[in-house]
Simulated assay, not measured.
Amino acid sequence: MIKIACVGDVMPASVHHGKKDNYIKSDVLEFLKSFDIRVATLECAIGDKPSFDPEKMVRKQDIVYAPTSDLYRVKEMGIDVVSLANNHAFDLGEEGLINTCKQLDKLGIKYCGAGLNSEEASCPAVVTFAGVSIAFLAFCDWRMDTVGYVPFATKNKAGMNEMREKNIKESIEKNKSQYDHLFIFLHWGVEYSYFPTPSMTTLADKILNWGADGIIGGHTHRIQPLISSHNKFIYFSLGNFFFPDRYINKPRPTYYPSEGEDLSNCPYSYGWPYVSILY
């Protein structure tokens, strides 16, 4: 039996920046250690000299980023795989995406869902445990009313892996036979909603019929229902795991406290991991 902890959105900085201890409860970390594999959505760009994506700034959309020095927390949580297919991984532009991938490589954290071209963005993240290969693909919704402006990867352009049915189906068909298990990250849904839309349930059903072993959803910042069918699961949205979204100064970049600011009564934002067990 392989135990996989599927947790929600992670953004390791903001009001946590500079905190070496007590940024997350020790019992949560111990609980995560009890699993064989841990996966999450890294919903931010990583960079030390922020150059905000000009297109998002013009559109007055939120910018979510974390300094490189805070990324260690993702490793400390034991996260093995992250999805980058989301509406914030490109918030520091192509340079930020390159740095994000570079820093994840340094920490030995595998990633999927974004890249310097469509080939890279569509590559799976693969983990092998006890001789069992487990692959993860990640896709970001393309609709403006869902995720806002998101640059999507093409043959010669960096960006996210696009959540088009044709793209998902072809990716599943290409990778299904190569690995023992194949799971799909989807960044979709209506923010701050507790229920999936009809289009989400329809697409989820198709994805399982195409051969995926399960769906790990995110973006809504709310926990949405879990559906289990034929020993396959659909997490429509896992909500926040470690994501202080209340500290985004809409429609401006993530809030970072000034030096010496009293944060003793500052409410942080992290949740509890959902769990999937593979047999």
Rank of each mutant, 00 (worst) to 15 (best):
T201P: 01
K232Y: 15
T220R: 13
L226F: 10
Y235T: 08
K232F: 14
Y247E: 06
L226G: 02
I207C: 11
L238F: 04
G217V: 04
P244K: 02
N209W: 02
T220Q: 09
H187C: 01
K232D: 09
Y247C: 10
I215C: 11
P244G: 08
S228I: 15
I216L: 15
W188D: 05
F195Q: 01
G214Y: 13
G214K: 08
G214D: 09
I223G: 01
I234C: 11
D205W: 01
W210R: 06
H230I: 05
F195N: 11
G189L: 03
Q224V: 06
H221A: 11
L208Q: 07
G218H: 15
I248Y: 02
S193G: 00
S228P: 00
I223F: 03
N209Y: 04
G211V: 12
S193L: 02
P196C: 12
M200W: 00
S229R: 15
R246E: 15
R222T: 08
Y247W: 05
E191S: 00
I215P: 05
G214H: 12
T220F: 04
F243G: 02
N231L: 06
L203F: 03
R222L: 02
S237N: 10
G217E: 08
T202D: 14
G189T: 04
T220K: 09
I207H: 10
I248C: 10
G217D: 08
W188K: 00
G217Q: 11
A204H: 10
T197N: 08
P244S: 14
I216Q: 04
H219R: 08
S199K: 13
S199V: 06
R222Y: 01
F241D: 01
E191D: 08
S193T: 06
P225T: 02
S193R: 04
T201E: 15
G218V: 06
F236E: 06
T197Y: 04
N240F: 03
W210N: 07
F242K: 02
W210E: 11
S199W: 11
Q224A: 07
S193K: 09
Y235R: 07
I248D: 13
F236I: 12
P253C: 12
